[in-house]
Simulated assay, not measured.
Amino acid sequence: MKRLLLLFSLLFTVLFAPTALQAKQKVIYLSYSDDLPERVFNGEFFPVTIKTLSTIGQHHMLKYSFTGGRGARLQNKVPDREDKGTYVLDTFYFLATSSTIVLPDITASIDSERSSLGGESIEGVSLNPDNKFANILADSFHITAVDAKKYDNKHNILTFDAEAEHCNIKAFKLHGVEDQGFESVNDGIKKAKMTYYAVLPKKYEKLEFTYFDLEKERYMKVRIPIEVIDDSVSTQSDLKPTENKNYIIKMAVAAVIIVIALVLLIVYRKWWITLFIIIPGIYIALQAAPAENICVNADTPVYLLPIENATVFDIVSSQGSFEVKHSVKGYKQITYNKKIGWISEDDICSH
């Protein structure tokens, strides 16, 4: 009996085991394309293309997941796809964040079927830039628009638009500029755009910085001329936070008129001469009156300029009283944290 059972067991193994193994054959095949980069610069966007073949088709149902890796930050979870019929080429973009780069393990799945591809190592290169480097690596970088205005008696504010290709444009930063930032940014991988501002000393006639050209593999210099436009007419007020240049002259002239009028009044004793005392006197009193003070609510944004969509450079942390430097329609100019800015009249305390 035991011999008979052993014989049946051997027959079952021979006849049915190959069929069971065939049912478990691999469904998804993954491999790197031939154009995997051998080296990348720290701060560069770089593509990684995966060749994916499914024996059951249904490439539209492919899903990818990433685990591990070092020095490479994934930028797009949905790949750029090139359909080759029997297989697809799926391209993912990574940002190099270190000189040591190991790609994450990639797993492709269709429902319960899975296949994984181990992460490859790529040589990373760190730059040694000069002190004018603006943290930008790009295939191209162009300034498309420039606007310069007077900000205060020591500074101008420069705003410029830029376009770039294959560039981490959000990393842009000028060296040695205290007040700077983005007005807007569109950080696409293939094409990126930004509007940037910088508050610069008046002595600067141009702004210079460098970026690294990835195609030429060298630093390129960018020069932006600073040609200041006085927009006081368009805003119906002087936007520059400076004192009235003619203040002393006007006060002196008013005082001289009063003195002369007093002498004439003593000599001729005519009542109409008193008008030349009263009117200049009223002017002097108004000019010498204490400055306007306003109560500003907590969490009020302080803007660089009194215009719509202006850049917020600070937030009033708590409710307080502030002296008004200038006023334009809808805005008041104040000094906060030793910086001059504008607040909306909507943020003035109601009581």
Rank of each mutant, 00 (worst) to 15 (best):
L5Q: 05
L5W: 12
L6C: 09
L7D: 09
L7H: 12
F8Y: 13
F8D: 07
L10A: 15
L11S: 11
L15Q: 11
T19Y: 12
L21I: 07
V27S: 04
V27W: 03
Y29N: 08
S31T: 09
L36S: 04
V40M: 03
N42T: 14
F46K: 02
I50L: 15
K51M: 10
K51C: 07
I56A: 10
G57Q: 10
L74K: 01
K77C: 04
D83S: 14
G85N: 12
T86R: 14
V88Y: 12
L89E: 15
D90K: 02
Y93H: 15
L95P: 08
L95Y: 11
T97K: 02
I101S: 00
I101T: 01
I106R: 00
R114N: 15
S115M: 06
S115I: 06
E120C: 02
I122V: 08
S126Q: 11
L127V: 02
L127Q: 01
L127F: 01
P129V: 03
D130S: 15
D139H: 07
A145K: 14
D147S: 14
A148P: 01
K149N: 07
K150Q: 09
H155W: 05
T159R: 10
D161P: 01
H166K: 10
H166G: 00
A171I: 03
L174Q: 07
V177F: 08
V177P: 03
E183H: 05
V185K: 06
I189G: 06
K191P: 00
A192S: 15
A198Q: 03
P201G: 13
Y211F: 15
F212E: 03
K216V: 07
M220R: 12
I224P: 01
I226W: 00
V228G: 04
D231M: 12
V233T: 09
T235Q: 10
K240G: 01
E243K: 10
K250C: 06
M251N: 08
A252P: 04
A252T: 13
A254S: 15
I257R: 03
I257W: 04
V259M: 14
L262S: 10
V267F: 13
Y268C: 03
Y268M: 04
K270D: 08
W271Y: 12
G281H: 06
Y283P: 07
Y283A: 08
A285R: 10
I294M: 09
I294T: 11
D299T: 06
T300A: 07
Y303E: 03
Y303H: 05
F313R: 00
I315V: 15
S317M: 11
S317V: 13
S318G: 04
G320F: 03
H326G: 05
S327N: 14
V328Q: 08
V328E: 11
S344D: 13
C349K: 03
